[in-house]
Write a protein that binds this DNA or RNA. Structure first.
Length: 276
DNA sequence: GCGCAGGTAGAGT
DNA sequence: ACTCTACCTGCG
């Protein structure tokens, strides 16, 4: 049987940039295969090949239309967002031009809660390893299209019963208890993820802040990368530095009110990878 | 050895 | 309302 695939031309879409922009820790470039990426989202596995603006998604049409199109936010016109940048703001214009291929994904809520709990005071290499570790230890085994084994993301139920320090074995360090307690909060119904999904940005943020270990930065990352609240503007150390250097009179929140999160990603990515 | 990496909770002013 | 510090771990 020939594996099914979907081929699409898409502008402003760079898998490399999405992969590096630090919002998705389960997408990686396949070694030895230059333009090929693999991605695990929840329990789904996808391979994509990217040559210029031609993208081949290795899945059937139905799955692409129903899931991945939405996941990668392919319906949104990012050129239009970039076009809204104040031309006199050369810093933001440069950042956006550098990161034009970034897209804000629509990732799984539970997965983002755990991922960004792990991200605090941590570096990207280790974050990826931590996630890989908990998936291998507590995620369900699955096989991809080529018969290779991979692990889904551990469900709250799989983590809720653990000792608070159990995930230190997965290199989470002091973040172990944050993750275990979050799992308990979900399983006990103390926080209702389905309800959070339906909430406004303000309400969802408030709700997420109730979780032990979730502060403002992590709550905003979850709002942006899982709930697609584009008003969210996560402030981490890099953003504080960038805003101090380039927006002494404050970031123009009003102008970008409904797409601040996209601008945040351009700045963040530019700060990390754009400087020579 | 020491400081830091995409923070946060808790205690102390 | 601020400011300070401990917190795991690995890497330079």
């Amino acid at each position: 049987m020939i594996p099914s695939m979907v081929r699409k031309q898409i502008d402003n879409f760079s898998l490399e940039q999405i992969c590096l922009s630090g919002q998705c820790f389960r997408m990686k470039q396949e070694d030895g295969e230059e333009n090929r990426y693999s991605l695990i989202a929840g329990d789904r596995y996808l391979e994509i090949e990217q040559q210029g603006n031609v993208n081949t998604f290795y899945c059937d049409e139905e799955t692409f239309e129903h899931f991945w199109k939405d996941y990668f936010d392919l319906e949104r016109d990012y050129a239009d967002c970039i076009g809204r940048i104040n031309p006199r703001d050369t810093y933001l214009a440069d950042a956006a031009s550098f990161g034009a291929g970034i897209r804000i994904l629509r990732q799984d809520l539970w997965e983002m809660i755990v991922t960004f709990l792990i991200s605090q005071q941590n570096n990207i290499v280790r974050i990826r390893r931590c996630i890989q570790n908990i998936c291998e230890a507590y995620g369900e085994e699955r096989t991809d299209g080529r018969g290779r084994l991979y692990y889904g993301f551990p469900k709250p139920e799989a983590l809720a019963g653990l000792d608070e320090d159990a995930l230190k074995a997965c290199n989470l360090g002091y973040r172990s208890k944050y993750v275990v307690r979050a799992a308990r909060s979900v399983v006990s119904g103390e926080i209702d993820l389905e309800a959070v999904r339906r909430m406004s940005y303000k309400k969802a943020r408030e709700e997420l802040l109730k979780l032990f270990g979730v502060g403002e930065k992590v709550a905003d990352c979850i709002c942006l990368f899982a709930l697609h609240h584009l008003q969210a503007f996560p402030m981490d150390t890099h953003m504080i530095q960038a805003l101090n250097a380039h927006y002494k009179r404050g970031f123009p929140n009003r102008r970008y009110k409904d797409i601040k999160g996209i601008m945040q990603q351009y700045i963040f990515y530019f700060e990390l990878f754009g400087k020579k």
